[in-house]
Every structure is written in C-alpha cells, then in structure tokens.
C-alpha cells in the first residue's frame, strides 16, 4: 500500500512539473534537476529493493541514509546554482536601474 502511495506521489509531481513546463512557468533547463529527482523517486517507489542494492554497493548499512544523502547533495547543488543565478540577476537589475537613472537625468537635462 505504501509503495502505491509513493508511486502515485512521484507520478503526480512529474505531471505537475510537465504541466509547469507546458505553461512556461518553469524553463526546461531549470526543470532538469527536479524531473531527475522525481524520476529517482518513481524508480525507488517501483523497485524499493534497488535502494538496498545501491546502499550495499556504496557500503552504507542503513539504506534510507543513502536516500537522504543523495537528496541533500541534490538540494545543495540546486541551492548553489540558484545562489549564482540570484547574484547574476542582482547585477543585471542594478545595471538596469543605474542605466535608467542616468538616462532619466539626461532626459531632464534636455527638457
């Protein structure tokens, strides 16, 4: 029962992502990580034993710890990417605002 619950949840999240992309609310590039995350969730829900196998492969005795580690790493990378993007956007906004202020003064001077 739990398995079905997780499969449905993962499928719903994937559908939501696809709908967001179709409505241009999420760009294809930005959606990549989320879609990857959802697919991983779906695969793990369908084949729960795969987590045990993976954990054994990397030498982790408690399989859910592997899941949480992967999730933390993905979220860390996403956060880092977003920090960089915010920085770029900040610079662009400042540039635009400065340019606008200068142009406004030039227009004022010509009046």
């Amino acid at each position: 029962m739990k398995r079905i619950y997780f499969i449905v949840l993962a499928a719903l999240v994937i559908i939501y992502m696809i709908v967001s992309i179709r409505k241009n609310k999420l760009s294809v590039t930005n959606s990549f990580f989320w879609i990857l995350f959802c697919i991983c969730m779906l695969v793990l829900s369908i084949f729960p034993k795969s987590l045990d196998w993976l954990a054994k492969l990397v030498g982790i005795t408690y399989p859910p710890a592997l899941f949480l580690t992967i999730a933390a790493v993905i979220l860390f990378i996403l956060n880092f990417i977003h920090s960089k993007k915010i920085e770029v956007l900040n610079k662009k906004v400042t540039d635009l605002a400065q340019e606008l202020s200068v142009v406004k003064e030039k227009v004022n001077e010509k009046k």
């Binding site: 605002a97 400065q98 606008l100 202020s101 200068v102 406004k104 003064e105």
Partner: peptide, 21 residues
C-alpha cells in the same frame, strides 16, 4: 545635477551610477 536612483542601491552602487554618468 541630481540623479535619482529608482531604488535604494546603497553607497557603492550609487557611486557607480555617478561614475557611469
């Protein structure tokens, strides 16, 4: 002459606005 920044940019970027001008 007075340039009005459209939002509060703080000291450094206000100076940079002047330098751009």
């Amino acid at each position: 002459k007075c340039i009005n920044n459209i939002f509060n940019m703080r000291y450094a970027w206000a100076v940079q606005t002047g330098i751009k001008y």
